[in-house]
Simulated assay, not measured.
Amino acid sequence: MGSPFSGAPGDDLIGYLTRYPHELTFGHEDPAAVFGRYHTDDFVLCNDGVPLDRERLLAHAKAGRRNATRIDVQVHDALAAGGKVAARYTLTALMRRGQVIATEIHMFGELSPDGRLRRVEQLSRDVSDQDPGPAQPPA
């Protein structure tokens, strides 16, 4: 299924990294529709060695919709070339009970011909207790 949407990760990786979490968590659109705009139907995210398919990721989105009140994404580095993407960014979520969860993510992905993500391998670490320091613009 191709999409005429020009904000696909292959066209605008930084836009995807910052826009997608907001659309998925706080948008009024069905999470499956948001997911499909940016990812292929057979998309798999392997996070810290754990594979997550579309259904598991949509279940995670439902929990996010219930529990998160704010999400901020700071992109440190991003590159898209030759059907591949790579990024280093920090995603910070404020939860309803006041907890702040900050995660540093190193992402490496493969794109489909229409620019959507087909597969992502990522490593993440909790940086919630670290001083974020000054904001760094993406390279």
Rank of each mutant, 00 (worst) to 15 (best):
S128H: 03
P51R: 03
E121Q: 15
V100G: 02
T90L: 00
E29W: 04
T90K: 00
L123W: 07
L45C: 11
C46S: 15
R116A: 07
A87E: 00
H28C: 14
K84W: 06
L91T: 08
H60L: 12
T92D: 09
Y38F: 14
R19T: 15
H76Q: 04
Q136D: 02
D131I: 03
P4M: 09
D42S: 08
M95R: 09
D131S: 01
S124R: 11
E23N: 02
N67P: 00
R19E: 03
R37T: 09
F43H: 12
V50Q: 08
V34I: 13
T92C: 10
P51S: 06
P21V: 15
D53F: 08
F5S: 13
D12Q: 08
D30P: 15
R65S: 05
M95D: 05
A93P: 04
V100Q: 01
R97S: 10
R119S: 14
L17R: 11
M1Y: 10
S128T: 09
Y16L: 06
R37N: 04
V44A: 11
I14F: 05
D77A: 12
G2W: 08
D131A: 07
D12A: 08
A59L: 09
N67C: 06
V100T: 00
R118S: 11
P134I: 01
K84C: 11
V75F: 04
G15F: 05
E104M: 05
A33Q: 13
L111E: 15
V75K: 08
G133S: 10
R56E: 13
F35L: 06
E110S: 14
H22W: 06
G49C: 08
F35T: 11
V85E: 02
T90A: 03
T92Y: 08
R118A: 14
T40F: 03
T40Y: 02
D129M: 00
T103I: 07
L58P: 13
P9T: 05
L24Y: 12
H28L: 12
D42A: 12
A87N: 02
R65M: 02
I71N: 03
D11S: 12
P21I: 12
G27A: 02
G15T: 13
R37W: 04
Y20V: 14
A80D: 07
A81S: 15
R125C: 09
A8G: 09
A93H: 07
E104W: 05
P4E: 06
H22R: 13
A93M: 11
R116V: 11
I101C: 02
V85Y: 04
D48G: 13
L79P: 07
H39G: 00
V34M: 11
T69H: 01
L91H: 06
T18M: 07
G115H: 12
P132N: 09
E104Q: 13
Q122V: 01
F5K: 05
E104I: 07
G36T: 13
G36N: 15
V120G: 05
V85I: 09
